[in-house]
């Protein structure tokens, strides 16, 4: 429990996020109304996803430089939890869009880009599922992982900014720039992002520890069966 400080921090930050997110004052805006508070829950999902996908790509590179089961497990589980957070991000985005844009799916460049990025990462797991040889699976998926990360960046961060998009922070819309300047919202937004990233990391480390134990059990089982 010595290294549990960041888990405690995660819990405290998320509790603060929920309380502050629902109760602290926010700018009064038409159409958006109170849904602006979803900023503290929807956006951090994507922050955490990108953070985990970055971790996944880093461990993929690590694997290619120096193949080890550990690097492979890290890479897979970062991508796994990242994908879950991305799916949650897209569902919450659809709910939000329904009440502010008028329909859940607008074909907005940011929405489409995010959906394609998620499909690219879904294909990562399809690829892994289709190779039986463990070493080959790890190597192939590590290479694909780097491509997936490189593809995700323009899909989510560049293309939506180049075209017109209703999504705040994208082209043709000053969006949250004006809300971001609101220091009241920053007081909750930054802790929220940190808290959700920590939670994503926490769940990922649990999955990694589980997979490492599974690896050890498999080794023992092999020894026993010999």
């Amino acid at each position: 429990m010595k290294s549990a400080w960041w888990k405690i921090l995660c819990v405290l930050l998320l509790m603060y996020t929920v309380v502050g997110g629902f109760l602290f004052s926010v700018p009064r805006l038409n159409i958006v109304n109170e849904t602006i508070r979803a900023l503290y829950f929807h956006v951090p999902m994507w922050f955490a996803m990108v953070f985990l996908f970055l971790g996944s790509a880093v461990h993929a590179i690590k694997y290619l430089r120096n193949p080890s089961v550990e690097s492979d497990i890290w890479s897979v589980e970062c991508a796994n939890v990242g994908l879950v957070l991305g799916i949650l991000g897209i569902i919450t985005g659809m709910i939000w869009a329904n009440y502010t844009w008028g329909s859940p799916w607008h074909g907005d460049p940011k929405q489409n880009g995010a959906a394609v990025a998620l499909l690219v990462y879904l294909a990562y797991f399809v690829l892994r599922g289709s190779v039986n040889n463990e070493e080959q699976r790890a190597k192939l998926s590590a290479v694909y992982n780097i491509f997936a990360f490189v593809a995700m960046i323009p899909l989510i961060f560049i293309i939506p900014r180049m075209t017109s998009s209703m999504h705040p922070g994208s082209g043709g819309n000053p969006g949250f720039n004006m809300y971001d300047l609101d220091s009241r919202m920053r007081m909750v937004f930054y802790p929220a992002v940190t808290g959700w990233i920590l939670l994503g990391g926490w769940i990922t480390t649990l999955r990694i520890r589980m997979k490492l134990v599974e690896e050890k059990i498999a080794l023992k089982e092999d020894e026993k069966n010999k």
């Binding site: 849904t35 939890v81 949650l88 709910i95 009440y99 769940i203």
Partner: peptide
Amino acid sequence: KMRSEGKIYVVVSILLVILIGLIAFVFFT
């Protein structure tokens, strides 16, 4: 309901979706 009270229930449902999603994931783990 969803459009009353300044649409605050939209935020509630968004947080609920995140919780359900994460709890389901933890459950499978």
